[in-house]
Design a binder for these strands. Structure first.
Length: 894
RNA sequence: GGGCGUUUAGCUCAGUUGGUUUAGAGCAUCUGCUUUACACGCAGAGGGUCGGGGGUUCAAGUCCCUCAACGCCCACCA
């Protein structure tokens, strides 16, 4: 074995072994534990957010698998409508081909080709990370099975009256030429202008009403000017007609609460077809909306001479013309939130269009209850509010998209036979298949009804919403569905609580009657070292695959886990992975060291033969098992705590203390050793192996590769991944008293080291040591185990005494229950020693003073719990004792 | 304009229900060390009074109020 652990050599080997062994498949008859992966986009490449997200899921999956649950981590990818369509369009563009040139059928074929060729990239990257998904169950949202689920859901929602088609003001992305849901629109603060425009009165063209707007180019869709009924400036104008500048059309001045006298001029133009507020105003006043724009965001025939101009050019032209005509009253610079498309970045246009919607209220109410009543819980809990705030307004969900890549809406229009075209009011049927649709249409509209399927596809999130059950075979009643639904924990980031989490919850409730998971774990966001989001455009991303190559997957995983404290964002830089790499290396070397002594020496532990250090490490192991198990158990999910407990135990207790103490015994040369020495070696080695076996099991969820490799090195034929999680409280777990004695001895060692360090005494130079105990009981307790100290420090004569007298030229140190003396004749420097002791004394005195003050406070003694007061008294006593000893030592120095 | 989060050693962060440490860890710094697993190592050391202010309490980093800075999310571009 090499002194450097090289992950590259073993990761691929073990991953293949696990796969071949079917280790990722649900096994046994234990209580099921299920996680569904947040399906990454097929177009995606693994980024640090994925690495974190999937490591968390894998830690849980491996933990539960080891605990004996029938564990399934269900993998899959998302067809990601817009993203995937764009990728393929860009590829075609390189060949000078547009999707329209190909036509829908051919284009969709191309996308499938692309998916089949490149869609596995992210899956392979997840494997590099060590993800133990059941890949035999890999799903894709456009698979036949999942598409069937989509159609089923659509039909049922339609039949329940929860899906409807209607003309509403929706968000339109002119670049992508599709409708968007509200959540797909991002408001971006942008520098803009606030213009005040004079609209002449129809019956008195010399008088004006001045309206304020940030969007003058929409004036051709104006249907009114609104003022507030309370606004004295405009009361007399209500009911009058005004003329839209540059047009021959007049519109009324109306009174509406939407007009805010404090904003702008207090008069506002009303453009129902292009503004959400105005749409509501228009409805209140029964004003017919006028569409003034084409779908490509150029102005239409309503705009007179501006017809054909795009919206931004038109804005400039309109403003220039208004100014020339003396109708521009004011221009103000202003920062405006501009709605933009989350995919294309284009400015979104509110547009009046015919679309498909899901009525939210009947679905949202039970979903809100599920969280309110704790059947589904968010970790951290504050995200329940985020969830509620989004669902509660019950805003209907626009689900139709004018794309080609996606689930085509299962609605068929019954078109006229003459031209085969559909119109606004063409009747339609909704059905699971074309055949069903035909039967329904014939029944309803006669034998010769001709059908044309709706061209729109569904919002990608419509299919993602079904993920926890569509992947398990729903709507069929599969065994997987029966076993693994509801799932247990959903691990995701806060960015998709609306898009995905909420929709899965109401879908699960609606179609299966149960919440899809009991816990939603929301992890933090990965940021760069400056605290900025990682992004392609900033170029500040850290590539997880590159990090895995450099530090190993185990190191990357472990580092991420130690950084994952509840819900906090993570500032990341490559050096953070060194922690993980160094840790793996530490463990590796401990094993490498003991391994040669293990062979043929392994034997059962015999309680009577266990040394103090053995009993202590077994007790510490037991505590660690408890901590790690409790930390990982949902809903605690304290990943960092678990990882740190393992780090501490492995590095400090197991390596720095235990192994150092037992080193000599473990390395005893078997040849020529006495039978006693050999017996001692065998026990020491066996304790080490016992602890190590459990330790690597505890570590396995975090560092699956190295632990599996170690397991093999220990000569175990079975795979670690499917072995058993250790239980706390095993017999032979070591005992608390031994552990306490050991802790005292370690404190004495600390004290010795501190003094030796102060005098920079080389490790190779021995010093004598006198341990002075305050009580005979303590003396009796420590004396038999003094060898622990000499195994950690080079000690000459070692005495454990009762109230020993301070030898001349010795340096004193303290530990709970006594003190030590380090005779340092020839080394002790009175000046340095005086400084050292004075400093210690100062600390002890100020602490004692603080205790005294506290205890002299009557209300403290009266109000505080007796045990707290007693604790303080004990502290004070020992501190006073300490002060005295230090004073004596100082006096001794002269 | 609302809501939420963060602010603890030079840096990155822990610190559960207020009282066991005299506020911890890793990295960095300083001093030693070829101690027969590991320099991706070993042993020491220095360094914070917990963003500011006020309050509750016998007792506050830990609860309340307030201010500030940074960040995130939401909000109809009159």
């Amino acid at each position: 074995m090499d002194s450097r652990y090289s992950p590259q050599d073993i990761e691929e080997k073990w991953y293949r072994t696990w796969q071949d062994a079917g280790a990722f498949k649900p096994q046994g008859q234990g209580k099921p534990f299920t996680i569904v992966i947040p399906p990454p986009n097929v177009t995606g490449a693994l980024h640090m957010g994925h690495a974190l997200n999937n490591t968390l899921q894998d830690v849980l999956t491996r933990f539960k698998r080891l605990q004996g649950h029938r564990t399934l981590w269900q993998p899959g990818t998302d067809h990601a409508g817009i993203a995937t369509q764009s990728v393929v369009e860009k590829q075609l563009a390189k060949e000078g081909v547009k999707r329209q040139d190909l036509g829908r059928g051919k284009f969709v074929e191309k996308v499938w080709e692309w998916k089949n060729e490149y869609g596995d990239r992210i899956v392979n990257q997840l494997m590099r990370l060590g993800s133990s998904c059941d890949w035999s169950r890999l799903r894709f949202t456009m698979d036949e099975g999942l598409s069937k689920a989509v159609r089923e859901v659509f039909v049922r929602l339609y039949e329940d009256g929860l899906i409807y088609r209607g003309t509403r003001l929706i968000n339109w992305c002119p670049k992508l030429q599709t409708a968007l849901a509200d959540e797909e629109v991002e408001n971006k603060e942008t520098k803009g202008h606030f213009w005040s425009i004079k609209y002449p009165l129809a019956d008195d063209p010399a008088s004006f009403i001045t309206v304020s707007t940030t969007r003058p180019e929409t004036m051709f869709g104006d249907v009114a000017v609104a003022v507030n009924a309370e606004d004295g400036r405009y009361k007399h104008l209500i009911g009058k007609q005004v003329r839209i500048p540059g047009l021959d059309r007049t519109i009324p001045v109306i009174a509406d609460e939407h007009a805010d006298p404090t904003k702008g001029t207090g008069a506002v133009k009303i453009t129902p077809a292009h503004d959400f507020n105005d749409y509501e105003v228009g409805k209140r006043h029964d004003l017919k909306p006028i569409i003034a724009m084409n779908l490509d965001a150029t102005l239409n025939h309503q705009a007179g001479k501006y017809q054909g101009m795009n919206r931004f050019d038109a804005r400039k032209a309109v403003v220039a013309d208004l100014e020339a005509a003396g109708l521009l009253a004011a221009v103000e610079d202003r920062v405006i939130p501009i709605p933009t498309c989350y995919r294309s970045g284009d400015v979104v246009e509110p547009y009046l269009l015919d679309q498909w919607f899901v009525e939210m209220k009947p679905l949202a109410v039970p979903a809100l209850d599920a969280v309110e009543q704790g059947r589904t819980r968010f970790v951290p809990g504050r995200y329940a509010k985020t969830y509620r705030d989004w669902l509660e307004p019950f805003k209907d969900w626009c689900i139709s998209r004018q794309l080609w890549w996606g689930h085509q809406i299962p609605a068929w229009y019954v078109v006229s036979e003459t031209d085969g075209k559909r119109r606004q009011d063409t009747p339609f049927v909704v059905a699971r298949t074309a055949e069903e649709a035909r039967i329904a249409a014939v029944g309803k509209y006669g034998a010769n009804a001709a059908l044309v399927q709706e061209e729109d596809v569904l919002d990608t999130w419509f299919s993602s919403a079904l993920w926890p059950f569509s992947t398990l075979g729903w709507p069929d009643k599969t065994p997987e569905l029966a076993t693994h639904y509801p799932t247990d924990v959903l691990v995701t980031d806060r960015g998709i609580i609306y898009f995905w989490v909420a929709r899965m919850i109401f879908s699960g409730l609606k179609f299966l009657g149960k919440e899809p998971f009991h816990t939603v774990y929301i992890h933090g966001t990965i940021l760069d070292e400056k605290g900025q989001r990682m992004s392609k455009s900033k170029g500040n991303g850290i590539d997880p695959i590159e990090m895995i190559g450099k530090y190993g997957a185990d190191a990357v995983r472990f580092a991420l886990m130690i950084l994952t404290t509840e819900g906090q964002d993570i500032k990341l830089s490559p050096v953070k992975f060194e922690t993980g790499r160094n840790f793996a290396n530490k463990l590796w070397n401990a094993v490498r060291f003991v391994l040669p002594h293990l062979e043929g020496n392994r034997e059962p532990l015999r309680a009577g033969d266990l040394q103090l250090a053995d009993r202590w490490i077994l007790a510490r192991l037991d505590e660690t098992i408890k901590t790690v198990t409790e930390s990982l158990e949902p809903p605690a999910l304290r990943f960092s705590e678990a990882a740190q407990a393992l780090y501490r135990f492995t590095w400090d207790d197991f390596c720095s203390s235990y192994l150092e103490i037992r080193k000599k015994v473990i390395t005893t040369d078997a040849a020529g050793a006495s039978p006693e020495a050999l017996a001692a070696k065998r026990q020491a080695v066996s304790v080490f192996a016992t602890v190590l076996e459990k330790l690597i099991t505890l570590l396995h969820p975090f560092m699956p590769f190295i632990t599996e490799e170690i397991r093999q090195a220990l000569g175990k034929p079975e795979l670690l991944i499917t072995s058993r999680w250790p239980e706390a409280g095993d017999p032979g777990a070591g005992d608390a008293e031994a552990a306490a004695t050991m802790e005292l001895l370690l404190k004495i060692v600390d004290s010795v080291r501190s003094i030796r360090g102060d005098y920079t005494i080389p490790a190779s130079q021995a010093t004598d040591l006198i341990i002075s105990c305050d009580t005979a009981a303590l003396q009796a307790r420590l004396k038999p185990h003094a060898d622990v100290i000499s195994s950690l420090e080079k000690v000459g004569v070692l005495k454990v005494e009762l109230n020993a007298k301070k030898p001349a030229f010795s340096a004193p140190g303290l530990f709970p229950g006594g003190h030590i003396y380090l005779p340092l004749e020839g080394i002790l420097d009175p000046v340095q020693e005086k400084a050292r002791l004075t400093k210690e004394l100062g600390k002890a005195e100020s602490f004692a003073a603080a205790q005294e003050k506290k205890l002299s406070n009557e209300s403290f003694v009266k109000s505080a719990p007796a045990e707290v007061v007693e604790g303080e008294r004990t502290k004070l006593r020992s501190q006073k004792d300490r002060v005295e000893k230090l004073k004596a030592a100082l006096a001794d120095l002269g």
